[in-house]
Amino acid sequence: MLSVSEFFSAQHRACDRVFEQLEEAVSRDGWPQADALYTRLCQDTLQHFSNEEEGLFPLFEEKTGMQAGPTQVMRGEHVELRELLQRMGDAIQARDRDEVLGTAETFFLFLQQHNVKEEQVLYPMADQALQGSLQELSARVPGFPSSDQA
């Protein structure tokens, strides 16, 4: 069966790929393509956040009893990432190339340090804590395979 680490890290990589294409489109003023890629980036990223905030994090908190721990820190960083995503969207709408690229760089660096912390600390902890509860997780997170599928 797929582990928490594998499933959620794969979503990070998938979002990175969309981001890279978006950035490239903007650098060569491919605005219509940028609009479409931005929509996709938002969908994928926000879906991933909600997978965590409504699925993984509450279950993790329930099983470990850590309410104000790492999940709280990650939620705080999601707020900032949503804001940066919004700012990037505003700049894309305004066709302001420099502001898009500057905000994209900012978003990317902040996102990477966030992802490293999740992948190296939080997910491995979740893999341990949620052993035997993956069925519950798959009920809460769309796309997370239940054991009968695996």
């Binding site: 705080g76 960083e77 707020v79 900032e80 804001e83 700012r87 420099d98 502001e99 690229l101 500057g102 905000t103 760089e105 900012t106 660096l109």
Partner: peptide, 23 residues
Amino acid sequence: LRMPVVMGKLEPGTKYYTPNIHE
């Protein structure tokens, strides 16, 4: 500069501008 936002110390709805990294 973003610490107040990340740590949730900002009043909701406050406008708070931070230059992006290229700036």
